[in-house]
Simulated scan of single mutants.
Amino acid sequence: MGTRNFTWRESALHSEVEALQWAMENMLQHSTCQSFGTDCKEMIAMIKEPHVWPSFATELERI
């Protein structure tokens, strides 16, 4: 789908979350894709146990 010029974020993990969210939004608009993946261990842990990552609550809610 391409890349997007993201603004500066607090951490690399914040950028990773925003990039995944952007990819999901775009793929769901333009295809029937229902599966997404990442190799970011922190992101996987965050999705499995969102209560452990309260500073990402808003971002995780969007995902």
Rank of each mutant, 00 (worst) to 15 (best):
G2P: 04
H30F: 14
N26W: 02
W8N: 15
K48I: 07
E59P: 01
P50G: 00
E16F: 06
T7H: 12
E25T: 15
W8H: 15
L20G: 02
V17L: 11
F6D: 05
L28E: 13
H14L: 00
S31V: 08
G37R: 11
Q21R: 14
P54M: 00
F6Y: 09
L60R: 04
N5F: 14
H30D: 11
I63N: 01
L60H: 03
T38D: 01
Q34K: 13
F6A: 06
N26H: 08
A57C: 10
N26C: 09
E16R: 01
E61K: 09
R62E: 07
M43E: 03
T38M: 00
R9Q: 12
T38E: 00
I44K: 10
S35K: 14
R9M: 08
L60C: 02
L28D: 06
S55N: 08
R4M: 11
W53L: 01
R4K: 12
S55C: 07
W22E: 03
L13A: 10
E25W: 15
T58H: 10
Q29V: 10
G37Q: 15
T32E: 15
L13I: 13
E18R: 04
I47M: 13
P54G: 00
M1H: 09
W53K: 05
W53M: 03
Q29T: 11
T32D: 15
F36K: 05
I63E: 02
L13Y: 05
L28P: 00
Q29G: 08
D39A: 09
K48Y: 06
V52A: 09
M24K: 02
E42K: 06
R9K: 15
E42S: 12
E16H: 10
W53D: 00
C40Q: 11
F6Q: 14
S15L: 12
E18Y: 01
N5H: 09
M27P: 06
C40L: 10
Q29R: 13
M24F: 03
S11E: 06
L13S: 13
Q21W: 07
S31Y: 05
H14A: 04
A23M: 04
N26Y: 10
L60M: 05
A45P: 02
P50Q: 03
E25Q: 14
S11A: 04
A23D: 05
Q29H: 13
S11F: 01
T32V: 08
K48D: 07
K41R: 13
D39N: 10
E10K: 15
S11V: 05
H14F: 00
M27T: 06
P50L: 02
R4T: 07
S15P: 04
T7R: 13
E18W: 03
A57K: 11
E42R: 05
Q21Y: 06
K41L: 14
A57H: 10
A19S: 01
